[in-house]
Write a protein that binds this DNA or RNA. Structure first.
Lengths: 168, 168
DNA sequence: ATAAACTTTCAAAAACATTTGAAAGTTCGA
DNA sequence: TCGAACTTTCAAATGTTTTTGAAAGTTTAT
């Protein structure tokens, strides 16, 4: 297999995975492209390699920077902006986890809390089932949330380190 | 807060979370509704509670059964089909993990393997970066995959049990 | 101050995903 | 076997998300 073909396939695989996990395909593809590029790329480079419009390229690079997965890089003697991806894959995972936790898990947790506090009459079977289910889900999500917290706090990755030794 | 309002909010929260994680909103809502229903519900019940069409209700219930999250239940003396959700939230998590692993992680892993095997000339900087990145991602995804395997194999949930004790 | 080089914005278009509902299919009891 | 009760299907309609590209905005060198 030629390098170009392999690169193409990698970008497309990453794009597919992204869209299955609620990340837009182009954003995942831009990310993939930057991950396998030894040198920073300009917006033009990205447009050309992925066949996407300027607006699209710009927007996705910007989003990736909001996720802290991509950095702006200055190249001496050039006015263009260049971009590189964070290459440490563990760090990538940490940052994605951090962001999704903040954006998606925390609001749900807050809502579940609120629903759990609500004074629901637990005399009807519906009331009973509601309290039980919401309680269980709250506990579960809370544990997940705390687990992610721990993993993120752990400076030296001891958490994942230890965990992964168990998984060999 | 009235029970009805709380139920409405729960269903809508679960629907939002679902769509953020690549699960269609109606499917997540049907799931939520069944989770908080003490008794099995018929297609009619679901249509009515969620204000969705018959086709939609039918399709999503069917999908939920494919995910092993919902069961068909027979009610004596009635020809209608009734549905209940798996209520054990740990079991729910296990089944979702199992299914997503099969549908989404395994194909990616296979592709990464293939790309890693490919004879790429590692003399160019691009070739070098490609091999390095694909190698790293492969290892990472492989560990995730093995970790999920372990969690799923563990009969008595010792894995999550142990893990979660750490998270308190 | 100007103009070239570059980046950002955003309304409209295109692509994609979901939902509807009526028709076709199935099952069951008599 | 028939018809009523129910379930499934699927083409069309609707709704949502993504993409485009040209115009507006910004920055920089001279």
């Amino acid at each position: 297999m030629k390098l170009d073909e392999a690169r193409r396939q990698f970008i497309q695989t990453w794009g597919t995975l992204g869209s299955e996990w609620g990340i837009n395909r182009s954003m995942a593809q831009v990310h993939a492209l930057l991950l396998i590029s030894p040198e920073p790329l300009s917006t033009e480079d990205i447009m050309e390699e992925l066949n996407i419009s300027r607006g699209n390229a710009n927007m996705n690079v910007r989003d990736l920077m909001n996720w802290n997965l991509v950095y702006k890089e200055l190249v001496a003697g050039d006015r263009k902006e260049y971009f590189t991806a964070e290459k440490d894959i563990w760090e990538v995972a940490r940052r994605i986890a951090k962001e999704r936790k903040k954006r998606e898990i925390e609001p749900v947790l807050q809502k579940l809390n609120q629903l759990q506090q609500a004074e629901i009459d637990a005399k009807s079977p519906q009331g009973k089932e509601f309290k039980k289910t919401v309680g269980n889900i709250h506990d579960f999500v809370d544990r997940m949330d705390k687990g992610v917290d721990m993993a993120l706090r752990a400076d030296e990755n001891w958490f994942f380190g230890t965990l992964f030794k168990l998984m060999k």
